[in-house]
Structures are given as C-alpha cells and as structure tokens.
Design a protein around this nucleic acid. Structure first.
Lengths: 257, 257
DNA sequence: TGTTTTTCTTGACTTAAATCAGTGTTTTTA
DNA sequence: TAAAAACACTGATTTAAGTCAAGAAAAACA
C-alpha cells in the first residue's frame, strides 16, 4: 500500500463537501493544535483552499513577494534555494500538515522556492490576514514561532548531517526520519513510497546520485531494506538506526510494530 | 586595530552609568529597530543585564529549560549542537547586536548550547516577560519572527555551502560574510580579528583543521589575504568574492573602501 | 501502443579532502 | 616565568565519494 494513496483516503474521510479546520483530521499536527474552537473558526475563515497543484508546479518562487504561508493538506513538496551560480540546494521535503514558507518572514520576498512532488492541495494563509490574527490570538503566534523554531532545529540537524556524517549514515538517517514522519501521520513506518526522485534525495543529502543509488543497492544486499522503485520497506529498523547514529529510534524499533 | 577592542569602545560611548535600549548604539541593528520610544522603554524594563560571561563559559546548555533569549551586547559566542554520539556541530557565530536562543521556541528546552568566544556581555530577555510583551507590542512580535526567519535563511545557505561548495569556496565565503558583518557594525571590512579558533572554523565549515590551515596559507600565497594569528586582512576582496561565488559582494568590493 | 525521454543502476577511474605523523607557536596556568 | 596545554602549520599517504561512461528500467508522451 502506498503512502500517497493513504493520505488521500485519510483526508477524504475528514470532509463532507467542504473542508474545515475543525473537521480536518490533520488538525492535531497542523497549526490549530493549541487553539480553541472559537479561535479555530476565526482562523478557518481566513484560509484559502484553491485548486490542487500539479506535480512540478511551484507553490511560490524564490524572489516572489512574501504574501502567504501554506499548510500542506495532501501530497508533498520540496523546498530549495538557488545560488547566484544557478546551483540548487533542496532544503527540505514537506508532507501533509506541515507549514511551508515561514522563512519568508526574514524579508519581503521568499528566500526559496517550493515545488510540488506530486499532486498537492494546500491551505493558503494570506499574510495580511494572518498578521491581524496573530495579534488577536496569542496561541496562534506561539504556534507559528514554535514552527519556525522547529525549522531552525531541523536545518541545524541537517548541517550536522552534511558536515559530519558519511553517505551511508545520511541515507539511513533520511529514511528513518521519513519513516517516523509517516508513522506520526497514521501510516506504516515500515513501508512507504518516496515521492521524491533519487536526484532530489542526493541533492538534499549533499551526495552524487550514483552514490545514493549504490547505497540503496548496498542496503538491500545487507538486508536493511527492500525497494521496488520508489517503494521502500524497512526490514532491519534496529540496525538501520544504529547506522544512522540514533539510539532513540533504535529503541522504538523493537517497541513498535 | 582589533575588532574586539573597537566593539568595547563603541559600546562604552553609548552608556553613561547604565545601559538602556534607547541609548544603545546597537539599537539600529538589534531588536528595537521597529519600535517607538514608548515601546522601547517597555522592552527596556524587562531586560536583565548581568555580569560579563568569561571566555569558555556557557550562556545556556543544550537541554536546559528554555527561559530566555539573549542579545549580544559586546563580545561573541558560538552556538553548537551535540549529537547523541558526542560529535559537536557549530551552527553559528554571533556578534554584538545579534539574538541567540531563538530556536528554543521549538520545544521547552534549548536544542543547542551557546559558549562565549571571548569576554561577552548580553541583554537577557526572560521568556515569560517577552511573551507578555509580544502580545502588547505587535512590532516586537514581527521583529522576533523576522529574526527567526533570518536564522532559517542563514542555516539554509549553510546547507548549500556544506553540500555544494569546495573547501576553498567555503572559507572564502566565511571570511567575506564575517567581513560584511563587521562592516555593518561600523568596523573595518578589510581588517578584523577572528574570535574563533581554526578548529571552530573547520568544525563550522565541515572541514578538517588541517585543510583550513592549508587554505589560509594558500590564500596568503595567492595574495588574497594576509594573516597574523587571528588577525585577518583582506587584500583582494574582488577575487575572494569571485572564489566565494558571490557576485553581489564582488561589486561592493570596488565600490567601498 | 510504441517511442522518446527521463530516471536509475552499475562499473572503472579520479580526486579533493581526510587522516596520520611530526614540529613549531601561542596561550594558559601553576 | 617556566612548564604544560592547546592551537596552528606542513608533509606524506589514504580513502570516501565524485566523475565519466554506458546500459536498463520507468515514466511521459504522442
């Protein structure tokens, strides 16, 4: 069973004809977690829910005026910065319930681009409305800052990965991190579909595609995972965690499933 | 003339007996930029200005309860995360006027440590008071979020450095970035003192110390810079910028000085 | 449906930076 | 102020990951 298909089912069950924050099954992961019902309704009125974004389309482009932040409802996006020289660096992958575009707060334009990895629907939070709401709902401000804090923490963990870990360690870490994120969304931690290409993974992890490809093969030979194209199954979670240098996850491997 | 000495002079001129936000010469760089005088006073009342922190002392430690953010008044700090395996990754260096500890918003403990690189004085902004103030002064909230956004952008630029740039490019970029930050604080962009060790630089840039040492020597042989211990003078800013892959800085080289 | 295009994999070879080893130089502290 | 410790530099060697090249498999398209 594919992760993508399941997210769609998951969401479908949460809406009648229209989607609302109060009935969205992602609300416990998304922004509204700390908000009461009345605040949730206020927020809900401000959210734009447009047509789906097709694979390859941009949600916003580096340099565009910073006018909104987005919550992923279904699908997945990648965010990336482009250097003056034209090189691209993928800074993250975002799944359902995650917020995209927060780094826009640093200036008046987005410092990165966001592109859909598959057909994706989003909740758009227009900045002007959000600004007003932030002053009205203290819980919303805190939640937003918490999200920004988490992004800083993520990026700093990534700096450690890029500067201190071997190629094997990076890929192991990447797979387990994704696995955990799927699990928190109610999907299998063992088996999931990678919505990004090998090129995207290698760019994100600071490696050559060939290296990533070789490690996938190697991980299969040593029976840590199996793959079938973009479908990945974790066989030996414990050993994979050991490789990733993550003792916490390792314990969870034995506990869960 | 050393950067450190000058920062001290700079600050000294801005205080009579007591330091206040309204008289601090860093205020145009620090938090209060967007605040009016009355708001500034409100903020000022909340700030704790303790004794100086000695070189090597921690401002806060990874895992400590998140209870305050800090503005550097004089001196410099490094922030770093420690992996479960014990490896350290320096995530940034902070100079006078910069805010430290913002990533604490991601949870209830600091996800990194901050250590003084030299004798350092800070303005402590206790979280409980800051929370109240954020709800009272909308400009303060915006300013804080802008600072967090800038940190995200910085870390993502760093990801690009670590994953795409050669050792030479990284060091060139590092030196020019520092140069620019000194200049914005009113010091020489050409000549400054590195408050961090070569080991710190190499850790931050994801390189071995030996590599950093060799590049310093190489940069001197090709007459891009001169060094005398921690003192650095940029001779050929233009070519250094070229190396760093930064066309914007390159133009500024010819304009300024 | 077959054809083009993109993505993925594998092998052979190269290289940038790491590691190892040793020496000189500051800084700390006793 | 002398000894110890930490820091900085240099050379020789190794190695992990990159590059180049080419074929296989999937995806996109027409």
């Amino acid at each position: 069973m594919s992760g993508e298909q399941n997210i769609v089912d998951f969401i479908a069950s949460s809406r009648g004809n229209k989607t609302h924050c109060s009935t969205c099954s992602l609300s416990s992961l998304c922004l509204p977690i700390a908000l009461n019902n009345s605040d949730l309704d206020t927020l809900d009125k401000v959210i734009k829910r447009g047509r789906p974004i097709q694979k390859g389309e941009l949600l916003f482009k580096q340099g565009d005026p910073f006018h909104a932040i987005y919550a992923i409802r279904t699908g997945a996006v990648k965010t990336f910065t482009v250097a003056p020289s034209g090189e691209e660096q993928i800074t993250g992958f975002n799944l359902a319930s995650e917020l995209v575009g927060l780094s826009g707060y640093s200036q008046d334009t987005y410092p990165l681009s966001a592109k859909a990895l598959e057909t994706t629907t989003v909740c758009e939070l227009p900045l002007d409305k959000l600004e007003v709401l932030c002053d009205e709902i203290p819980g919303l401000r805190k939640q937003l800052m918490k999200n920004m804090g988490s992004e800083i923490r993520h990026d700093q963990q990534m700096m450690l990965q890029l500067s201190k870990r071997s190629a094997d360690e990076r890929l192991a870490h990447f797979l387990l991190e994704l696995s955990g994120r799927f699990e928190r969304r109610g999907f299998s931690a063992k088996s999931f579909r990678l919505s990004m290409s090998r090129v995207d993974i290698s760019n994100y992890l600071g490696l050559a595609v060939e290296t990533v490809s070789r490690i996938f093969t190697r991980f299969q030979k040593s029976e840590l995972i199996t793959t079938e194209g973009k479908e990945v199954t974790v066989i030996n979670c414990s050993e994979l965690s050991e490789l990733a240098g993550n003792p916490t996850i390792k314990e969870e491997c034995n506990a869960a499933h």
